[in-house]
Simulated assay, not measured.
Amino acid sequence: MRDHDHALIKSKWENLGTVKFTLVRNLGKKLLLNNVSVERYSDWIGKLPVVVLSPEDSVLTSGAPQLKRQYFDRLFSQVSHEYLANLIHYSKLLKQRNAYLKLKNDRKSFTYDTQLETYDEQLAPLSLKLYAFRKENFSILNDFLHAFFLAIDERDIPVSIEYKSSLSLSEKNNSYIETFLSESRGNIQNEILLKRSLRGAGYDRIEFKRSSQALKTGASQGEKKFWLVCLKLAEGKYILQQGGVEPLYLFDDLFSELDIDHTRNLLHHIRELKQIIVTSTDLSDLRRQGISPTPGSFNIIDI
Rank of each mutant, 00 (worst) to 15 (best):
residue 207 E to D: 00
residue 129 K to G: 03
residue 162 E to V: 11
residue 229 V to I: 14
residue 165 S to E: 13
residue 128 L to N: 00
residue 168 S to Y: 14
residue 224 K to Y: 02
residue 178 E to T: 12
residue 235 E to M: 03
residue 159 V to I: 13
residue 165 S to M: 05
residue 208 F to T: 01
residue 221 Q to K: 08
residue 132 A to C: 11
residue 214 A to K: 04
residue 130 L to T: 07
residue 140 I to R: 11
residue 169 L to A: 04
residue 202 G to D: 14
residue 180 F to T: 03
residue 177 I to C: 13
residue 232 K to C: 08
residue 206 I to S: 04
residue 172 K to I: 03
residue 193 L to I: 13
residue 144 F to E: 15
residue 206 I to N: 07
residue 210 R to V: 09
residue 195 K to L: 09
residue 189 Q to G: 10
residue 230 C to E: 02
residue 139 S to K: 07
residue 157 I to F: 02
residue 213 Q to C: 09
residue 169 L to D: 15
residue 131 Y to T: 10
residue 178 E to V: 03
residue 195 K to W: 12
residue 217 T to D: 12
residue 214 A to Y: 12
residue 154 E to N: 14
residue 201 A to E: 09
residue 210 R to E: 02
residue 228 L to T: 15
residue 136 E to K: 11
residue 226 F to R: 01
residue 203 Y to V: 05
residue 159 V to G: 11
residue 220 S to A: 07
residue 220 S to V: 05
residue 158 P to N: 05
residue 133 F to S: 15
residue 232 K to W: 06
residue 181 L to T: 08
residue 205 R to F: 03
residue 181 L to P: 11
residue 212 S to C: 07
residue 220 S to F: 06
residue 153 D to S: 14
residue 150 L to V: 05
residue 203 Y to K: 05
residue 229 V to Q: 06
residue 173 N to E: 03
residue 226 F to T: 00
residue 201 A to W: 12
residue 154 E to G: 06
residue 213 Q to G: 10
